[in-house]
């Protein structure tokens, strides 16, 4: 297992434990939608949490009337706060998993400089942002991230890094400079997130360089 695979499993585990930020969680969730293997791995990591809860984490006595109060609430039809389901947006790119589409804030692609277009993804967490990129065919782009790592999920087409070809559903975790080459015919569409406080817009201006 190399460092990148280490990072990959660390991210899946942070997702399973619930401490991964929203932007990265979004990419992981979209990856899981496209990868049964990833879903299985996250389920395995959740089972670690279940095992610790069940057998290893100890217990703290509940207040004496807790069960009675819970049963009262159940009888009253009390329900926990409903999850706010985001509505599916009208997205310029409709081939993304639902969990990603609900986050898209623009219906059209915005032209970037140098062989790519973007759609912004609005997260409620300011610390982590995500974007979807459409990279032109046969484009070389450089990832030069200042954050600890970057997640890139291929949604369509493919790209390669000289070692492997990444296709729909593949998640690449980079933790330093990387040079990626989009498919010569199809180009690629990918979703990108990183745990960073600085602007993704500024970031993309720095990282995507067309040769």
């Amino acid at each position: 297992m190399d460092v990148k695979e280490d990072l990959y499993h660390a991210l899946l585990m942070e997702y399973a434990s619930g401490c991964l930020d929203e932007g990265q969680s979004l990419i992981i969730a979209a990856h899981m939608a496209l990868s049964p293997a990833a879903r299985k791995t996250v389920a395995q990591y959740e089972s670690v949490g279940g095992a610790i809860l069940d057998d290893c984490c100890g217990k703290v006595a509940m207040t004496k009337d807790a069960l009675a109060r819970v049963l009262d609430k159940i009888d009253c039809g009390d329900s926990p706060s409903p999850c706010v389901q985001k509505s599916k947006s009208t997205m310029a790119y409709m081939n993304a998993p639902n969990c990603l589409q609900t986050y898209v804030e623009s219906a059209t692609w915005t032209d970037g400089k140098g062989g790519y277009q973007t759609i912004s993804v609005r997260t409620s967490c300011h610390r982590s942002k995500a974007r979807i990129y459409k990279i032109d065919p046969d484009t070389v782009f450089r990832v030069n991230t200042r954050s600890p790592h970057q997640l890139t999920l291929v949604l369509e087409g493919s790209f390669h890094d000289g070692r492997a070809v990444y296709r729909r559903g593949d998640l690449i975790v980079t933790n330093g400079d990387a040079v990626l080459h989009s498919d010569a015919e199809q180009g690629c569409i990918c979703a990108v997130a990183q745990p960073s406080v600085f602007s993704v817009k500024r970031f993309v201006q720095q990282i995507f360089i067309r040769y």
Partner: peptide, 10 residues
């Protein structure tokens, strides 16, 4: 916090 999850009906 928000934790996006897959949509089982996707």
């Amino acid at each position: 916090r928000v934790r996006p999850e897959i949509d089982p009906a996707d």
